[in-house]
Amino acid sequence: MVLPAKAGTEKLTWRQPIMLTVVKIDDEEISAESFVKLLKVNDKLDALLETVVTDKLTVHAAKRSGMTVSAEEIQARADDIRRIEGLHRAQDTMEYLNNLGLSIEEFEQHVVESLYREKMEAKVCTEEAVNEYFRLHSPSFDSVEVSHILLDSEGKASEVFALLEEDPDSFADMAMEHSLAEDTRYQGGCIGKVLRGTLSNEIEAKIFNAEEHEPLGPFRNEDGRSFEIFMVDSKIPASLNPKTLKEVKKKVFRKWLEDRVGEFRIEVY
C-alpha cells in the first residue's frame, strides 16, 4: 500500500464518488456513455483509445518480460508526486485523490503502471537502438528554413514567379510587396523551420530536393483559389540533438509496440 503523507493523529475518511455523470451543464447531465458517443462522433475516441491501449500493452509486456517494481520504488514515486503537487499532509493527499475520483489502491496502481512503462521504455530505447534507428532514418529528420509568397490568382503567381527566376535575391522584397499572408509578409515571407511531414506530399518532395535560394511553384492551395511560391533559405541536416532524440525514442518504441500487438488479445467494444 502506498502510504499517504505523515499525518500525526489526523483521522481520515474516504469518499469514493460514483462516476456515472461526466459533466453537468445547467440541468443537462452528460453520462459516461454519452461522453464516449460524443468522442466517437467528433472522431476523438480512437486517439484516446490508442493511448490507453498503448500504455496498458506496455505494462503487460513489462510483466511478461519478468520486470518487477519494488515497494521502495513505489513509495519513492508516490512521494515525488506528493511533493510536486504540494500534498504535505495526509488530508491533502486524500482530498487530492478524492477530487480525481481515485482510491488509494487505484493511485498505487497508477504509480506501479507508470514505473513499469518507464522501465520498459528504457529497456527498448537503448542508446544502441536509438543510434541505429537514426542512422537508418536520418533523412526523415532533416529540416529546412523556408519562405513563401501567397497570391490570389494563378496569373499573378506566374508573373511573380517569372520575376523571381530572374532575380531570386528579390524574394523578400516581393513577399513584402505582393504576399497576402499577413503573418509572414512583413518578415519577407519567412515561415521558419519546417520538418518533414508538415507540408503536402507534392510541396514537401520539391522543397526537400530543391537547392537553397531556388524559387519553387507556383502551387495551388487546397482552397483552389490561392497560390504559393516557396524558397528554401537554408537546409538543416539532421543531428541527434535533444529534440530529435526524443522523437527518435518515440519512433523506436512505437515500432517495438507494433511488433508486440500480435502477442496480445485486444478487444474493442
Rank of each mutant, 00 (worst) to 15 (best):
L3G: 12
G8A: 04
T13N: 15
W14T: 09
I18H: 14
M19V: 11
V22L: 15
K24Y: 05
S31D: 15
F35H: 05
V36E: 12
L38C: 14
K40I: 05
N42V: 07
E50W: 08
T58S: 06
T58C: 10
V59T: 00
A61M: 02
A62T: 05
R64A: 00
R64W: 00
R64T: 02
M67D: 06
E72W: 08
E72G: 03
E72M: 13
Q75G: 02
D80N: 13
I81G: 09
I84D: 13
I84K: 11
I84W: 09
L87H: 00
R89I: 06
R89F: 07
A90G: 01
Y96H: 04
L97M: 11
N98D: 13
L102M: 04
I104G: 14
E106N: 07
L115S: 05
Y116M: 07
R117F: 06
E118L: 13
E118A: 13
E121M: 10
E121P: 07
A122T: 00
T126Q: 07
A129W: 14
N131F: 06
E132N: 08
E132G: 07
F134A: 08
P139C: 09
D142L: 03
S147G: 02
L150V: 04
L151K: 03
L151F: 02
E154Y: 09
E159T: 09
L163I: 02
E166P: 02
D167K: 09
P168A: 12
D169M: 12
D169I: 06
F171M: 09
A172M: 11
M176Q: 13
H178G: 07
H178L: 12
E182P: 01
T184W: 03
R185N: 07
Q187C: 10
L199K: 01
S200F: 02
A205C: 10
E211V: 07
E212Q: 12
P215I: 01
L216T: 04
G217R: 04
N221R: 15
D223A: 07
R225N: 14
V232P: 00
K235I: 00
P237K: 06
P237D: 11
K246H: 04
K250C: 11
F253Y: 03
R254C: 11
K255W: 01
G262Q: 13
E263N: 04
E263R: 01
R265Q: 15
I266W: 02
V268H: 14
Y269L: 14
Y269T: 05
